[in-house]
Write a protein that binds this DNA or RNA. Sequence first.
DNA 1: ATTCTGCATTCTGCATACAATTTACGCGCT
DNA 2: AGCGCGTAAATTGTATGCAGAATGCAGAAT
Lengths: 235, 235
Amino acid sequence: MQPKSEAPKGRKSPKLKRMGLHERAAARMRTMIIRGELPPGSQTQETRLSKELGVSRTPLREAMKVLAAEGLIELRPNRSPRIAALAVDGISELFEALAGIERLAAELAAQRATERDLARLRTLQTRMEGHHRNGKLDDYFAINGEIHNTIVRMARNTPLREAHETLIARAERARYLALGADRRWSNSVDEHANILAALEARDGEAAGRLLGAHVRQTGTALLETLAPKPKLTAA
Amino acid sequence: MQPKSEAPKGRKSPKLKRMGLHERAAARMRTMIIRGELPPGSQTQETRLSKELGVSRTPLREAMKVLAAEGLIELRPNRSPRIAALAVDGISELFEALAGIERLAAELAAQRATERDLARLRTLQTRMEGHHRNGKLDDYFAINGEIHNTIVRMARNTPLREAHETLIARAERARYLALGADRRWSNSVDEHANILAALEARDGEAAGRLLGAHVRQTGTALLETLAPKPKLTAA
DNA sequence: ATTCTGCATTCTGCATACAATTTACGCGCT
DNA sequence: AGCGCGTAAATTGTATGCAGAATGCAGAAT
């Protein structure tokens, strides 16, 4: 991941103008993979995809390398790239790693957060609670993710943030499968409130412990909704 | 994620034969960057490098994307890629993140290590102590790194292992600068012994704490030897 | 003397063409 | 009929050519 670039994920960013073709191809493929339009385990043909995306094979291949580094696709020599499978084991490991990273981030954030950071976090929390009350699922999820990203940024550690970003990309994918099946809104809101309180108290150990547990629970909840159909373990 | 773990990083792998050109270019550039043959902050020209490596620009550009994802080079639109600078801040953050990851790995490893894992670790520790007594610096470092990697693998968490790998690549680079300036051999050996003991006792908290502290100390020791010449902060 | 402007050069970005490797199919053999 | 082999089609990997952007330089205007 490029250390400097602000939003390489192209998440509805207003300035899509100044993006190279391979970046746009990568962004497009990312969302396609996350949304399941490219099913896990399926094979991709360069010529077909390049026509579909309206670019030539050269930038497409470059995009493939990027996505492979993010763990979204799997590259084999002289063979068609495969969309990475999303096995249950993989999801479990993924959220475990994510929980560990965010725990560390929270510990550091508790030490380094500025008042401005905390204010921003409070604002987000308030907004999220609003969306929670109004039942606005999409907005709720968006703010929720932003809170996690904000905490990670508050840790003021670039490599950590980058590692987090790549893991988040994969997690989004799993989350999309359980689309809105997250029935633990209330728990989640409360947990966020507790984490915020710990950060404000500069209690890094507690903040880390709470955030880690929160992420782990999110993962297990997600796994439970996916449990009835574990067919995702593509060969 | 991927059930069958392979070694896409091609770290001096014995079977270099079946590697694509872009992989070989990436591997070659990796070592060049780690060894400082491509100085931090310097710019790379595609045509020049492609001639130097004996490949065309296409696979070289693909290799660039991979290295950028690993954080070793920095890509700017329509500009020459730059070898990532190694600022003091960056090194500090890097080892901080690395310490966090390895702490988590040790905690998990304490739960999941098989007897075989522990036996392997004991063997490595013995060998390392041997190299330590004989003053064999290179071998010592090799075994040392292998111990860390082994502990991370013992955590049985693929995403975590992958994140660790990319961070290690950058750390190797910093370590190369302080080449052998690590005067804390004895400390390091003892610390490793304590970590091993904690793992054998299945005490995850202690193992994590010890390993994290160990990595942090390695980082600070490295920074101290680099302190007199902080010129590495390329613009 | 300095700065702005326009042009020429150089380099990146992309597309296309070519080579190598894999996969598919059909023929012949057992 | 089943299996193995060889050839052809398809697909990935690599090289090259061309267009657009950035950089450097020269000259003119202030």
